[in-house]
Design a protein around this nucleic acid. Structure first.
Length: 426
RNA sequence: GGGGAGGUACCCAAGCGGUCAAAGGGGCCUGACUGUAAAUCAGGUGGCGAUGCCUUCGGGGGUUCGAAUCCCUCCCUCCCCA
């Protein structure tokens, strides 16, 4: 077994850690079991979840046993951590649907076949929903003082804000998460909980509970909040959240998100989001310093993260599509490649004879949603921001023609530098 | 329960009878420069059959030749006092 704490610190992946030395000894001496919880608040995880998710995978690679806990029970309550206002309760059907898709995403990153330390996914609804209120208040509630609970950041901030307040329901959340840890400590011998830095309060509550109830020692570790150099929110683009679900964020767009990472963030992100070793990262760091225009760090980052999330095949396809689209000429691309590239961008299907009628480009732009209105389409066109098959369109009155349909079927519309839409005639 | 302040476009915020599709800022979009980076600069940012027409200033109703601006009413938010 390997103590991977030094490795995590080297990568900048530790925000907070309880008794670092004792935890290090534990990890060095035996196969430890750890868990990370994932909230089913949406039907997909997003790139923000990658750090804890890969964190679990890192522990597994070091010989430890990871458990991913899907919050089917806690999701019914709502975690106040990091939320400025009370949240609407998720209805049970929605939650069940979210859980199902999130579980399958979690599975991608972990190894369940391992002979020695297979991963496990559990749902905390399995034990939380069986709790009875009186028993819970007597056995668990008695171990916490409200005084300590209201001192936790997640609660305090909401107590100070008279406008939003906090319901008893959300106030109780930390007890449930503490109970999760206790339960896993008892049933799985789980001694470590990791999570995002906003989870610190919940994690330490669990550690205390284990000490009080079982007299045992458990550990907590949090990952840093990911920031970007330009102050924008990590994991967001103008178009919205970058999801792990390929139906919500295509592998191409996912790849592109990482490809566009700021130079100042690229190396940090390689450490956070890939398994590349220190030597390789150092190489890439040199590359960023000496020839940033080659974007080698971004390319490596994009490929690695896309491969981890969507598989190596999808990563290669996204890379190929990127090379074509940003390489300039689309005209010389083979039909097979073109079909694949078109498949990776938003697509509008149109009748075969669409281009034959020389429709105004403006109409096509609005129809496929690349521009919100004809007025906007005209302005973009007039400003030189519209490209047909990567060739700048000329003037507001531009029209499409059958000659624009590559192989008689594909017309690649582009707005600005990087927004694509494929028209497919059939 | 009493008193006060407000609700304007994606957000903040000016306007307080015509010159208002509505200042300014942010955001966003496009362009230039570049490296699919950052910074910077420029233009744009309700819709359309477009030197005009239609919709928009919390909802509804009114006054007026004319209202985001005045009146009535309803809804909502915030602050102070009890």
């Amino acid at each position: 077994m390997e103590n991977i704490l030094p490795e995590l610190y080297r990568r900048g992946l530790v925000a907070d850690c309880t008794d670092r030395e004792a935890l290090g000894n534990l990890l060095a001496s035996k196969r430890a079991t750890l868990y990370v919880g994932f909230d089913p608040t949406a039907d997909s995880l997003h790139v923000g979840s990658l750090v804890p998710l890969l964190g679990l995978a890192r522990f597994q690679r070091a010989g430890h046993r990871p458990i991913a806990v899907a919050g089917g029970g806690t999701g019914l309550i709502g975690d106040p951590s990091g939320k400025a206002t009370e949240r609407a309760l998720l209805d049970r059907d929605k939650l069940a649907a979210n859980l199902a898709s999130i579980k399958s995403q979690l599975a991608r990153f972990l190894d369940f076949e391992s002979k020695t330390n297979p991963a496990k996914i559990v749902d905390n609804a399995d034990w939380l929903c069986r709790l009875d209120l009186i028993g819970f208040l007597r056995d668990i509630g008695k171990r916490f003082t409200v005084n300590a609970m209201i001192a936790k950041e997640s609660v305090r901030s909401r107590m100070e804000d008279r406008e939003s307040g906090i319901s008893f329901t959300e106030f109780s959340y930390m007890l449930l998460q503490a109970y999760d840890f206790l339960h896993l400590y008892r049933t799985e011998g789980c001694e470590l909980q990791a999570g995002g830095s906003d989870q610190w309060g919940n994690i330490t509550a669990g550690i205390e509970l284990i000490r009080k109830v079982e007299g045992g020692t458990a550990f907590g570790l949090t990952f840093p909040l990911i920031t970007t150099a330009d102050g924008k929110k990590f994991g967001k683009t103008e178009a919205g959240t970058v999801w792990l679900d390929p139906r919500r964020t295509s592998p191409y767009r996912f790849y592109q998100y990482w490809m566009r990472v700021d130079d100042r963030d690229a190396i940090r992100f390689l450490n956070y989001f890939t398994f590349l070793d220190a030597e390789r990262v150092a190489e890439l760091e040199r590359s960023v310093r000496e020839s940033p225009e080659r974007r080698e760090a971004q390319a490596a980052l994009a490929f690695e993260v896309t491969a981890l999330t969507h598989g190596a095949e999808a990563a290669r396809a996204a890379r190929r599509a990127s090379e074509v689209l940003f390489g300039g000429e689309v005209a010389g691309v083979s039909e097979a490649d073109l079909a694949e590239i078109a498949g990776d961008m938003p697509t509008t299907k149109l009748p075969k004879d669409f281009a034959a009628g020389s429709p105004p480009l403006v109409d096509a732009l609005v129809r496929c949603g690349l521009c919100k209105s004809k007025g906007e389409a005209r302005r973009d066109l007039a400003g030189g921001g519209i490209y047909v098959n990567n060739v700048r369109a000329s003037g507001e009155a531009a029209r499409l023609s059958s000659a624009d349909a590559l192989f008689g079927r594909y017309i690649l519309l582009r707005k600005g530098k990087k927004t694509y839409h494929a028209l497919v005639l059939e």
